[in-house]
Design a binder for these strands. Structure first.
Lengths: 259, 259
DNA sequence: CGACTAGTTGATTCGTCTCAATCAACGTGG
DNA sequence: CCACGTTGATTGAGACGAATCAACTAGTCG
């Protein structure tokens, strides 16, 4: 497991393309990322300090202990934050979706590994000017607080999953989370029948859920056998009945938050 | 397990004393809580909106779904945030120590249960004036962001524990966390020999670690047998060698963060 | 004193991990 | 074009760790 990861790093180290700057006004995450509350003048400041980077699936974005000269937002794709024990056991501790923020102001040394799970485009801000802006204008700091509080809520729900759910419930919960996100993107209810695309390999799902990849595979097969899900290839799933899936997840039926 | 908790609630519902206001200048958490960065004029604003409440061990502070008319800081004692599955399985998702913040601005409905683990004194701020202050003065919002980012880091370390550590490693990690905190309070290194006081019952430790209380008891006994810890009564521990404990925790030796 | 709580310990069960074989899809070089 | 290696995934057999069920102890309170 360790040697496999090292191989991955070496293979992928080669390419990390830098692209030219697009306009913030056209950005797909304009109203959900750290910049959400910014006025046009603040947006201009951000335009000045930003640059884009892309990463291929499996490619590391930063490594724990590395100096990080930027912070930034996921524009498209999915990235995973992971932590590792000395003997190689790894646990995913963050799943960054479009608009999620990577890095921490005032911390130059990365505390986690970040790996692209799919193709990822990152909107990066040079650290120094971004930190200045945090101090001088309220909107970025305020939005970052909101986002961090949301992440903390997500982390706590995740802790309940890791500490108390069975393997079957973990898988059902994960699929439900992805389904809800998919539904939110399409601005519709996750009710009844729907199709979803899994953004993670079986191994990454195992790291997310605190399981082995074999157990992930077995439980997915079991949910399929029981008619809770239908597999379409390896990475896509049809949900005949979303409510049934939620039952299998062990959560209270509603799970609805009030902001 | 469910019935036991319900009994607890009913027993403890009775008392929640309201105390008079002490001066912020003398507060033991003056320079670590949300108010840490505040100037004297901002402190005066906070004095106006604050009041104290105390809770006895085992007593609930708020219940998930309750309307919460305040936010606040733990002044003394230890409180636990917990989440539950519908069938009663419980996971602790936050351990609030002195200076830690309870509640979320802009969220009136509590998302978690909070229970006093020891006798707790809470410095409460009335919600509305506190939220106004978040908007109008930068220091409180800024400090809250710092604290929330720290909590997120702690949550992520906790996720690694829940997802990937063995029962023995979980217990060792927990004791190490408490020992480090104790050492920090006394402003000394957690090196060599030291004595610590466990602020949680075996059941609460189990909820923290995603174990059963029997497993907690067994692993504590095992660590004692192996000379890693010495028990003094049920709730106090002597550490002959802190480094040995850290080895047992499975973490990288250092674990040192850079802020 | 008995009732109750917190904790310990034992016997057994059960769920997940570990190790291993197998398969399908894909790319590569001879 | 096909044999070969690689990667991601599935499935099986057996081992092991933690949960469960249960008995028991010590301390505390009324």
């Amino acid at each position: 497991m360790i040697t496999r990861e090292i191989a991955l790093i070496q293979i992928n180290q080669k390419s990390a393309s830098h692209d030219g700057g697009e306009r913030c006004g056209d950005c797909p995450i304009r109203y959900r990322a750290v910049c959400a509350h910014c006025e046009t003048d603040e947006l201009a400041l951000l335009e000045d300090m930003k640059f884009y980077r892309s990463f291929d699936p499996g490619q590391p974005i930063v490594w724990e202990g590395d100096r990080m000269e930027f912070v930034g937002s996921v524009v498209t794709g999915v990235a995973a934050l992971t932590q590792t024990l000395e003997d190689g056991r790894t646990q995913m501790v963050g799943l960054l979706l479009p608009s999620d923020f990577l890095g921490r102001p005032k911390r130059e040394i990365a505390a986690y590994n970040a790996v692209a799970a799919t193709k990822v485009v990152l909107c990066c801000f040079r650290r120094k000017p971004f930190e200045d802006m945090m101090r001088t204008t309220p909107h970025v700091a305020h939005r970052l607080l909101e986002m961090t509080l949301d992440e903390l809520d997500a982390a706590r729900e995740w802790m309940l999953l890791l500490g108390r759910k069975t393997a079957r419930e973990k898988i059902a919960s994960f699929i439900a989370i992805i389904a809800r996100r998919e539904a939110a993107l399409q601005k519709r209810d996750p009710g009844g029948r729907m199709r979803i695309e899994l953004p993670l390999t079986r191994e990454a799902m195992a790291d997310y859920l605190g399981l082995t990849l074999e157990t992930v595979s077995r439980q997915i097969s079991a949910l399929k056998r029981d008619g809770v899900i239908e597999l379409v290839g390896k990475r896509a799933i049809n949900l005949p009945d979303f409510a049934r899936l939620v039952e299998e997840s062990g959560d209270d039926s509603d799970g609805g938050y009030l902001s």
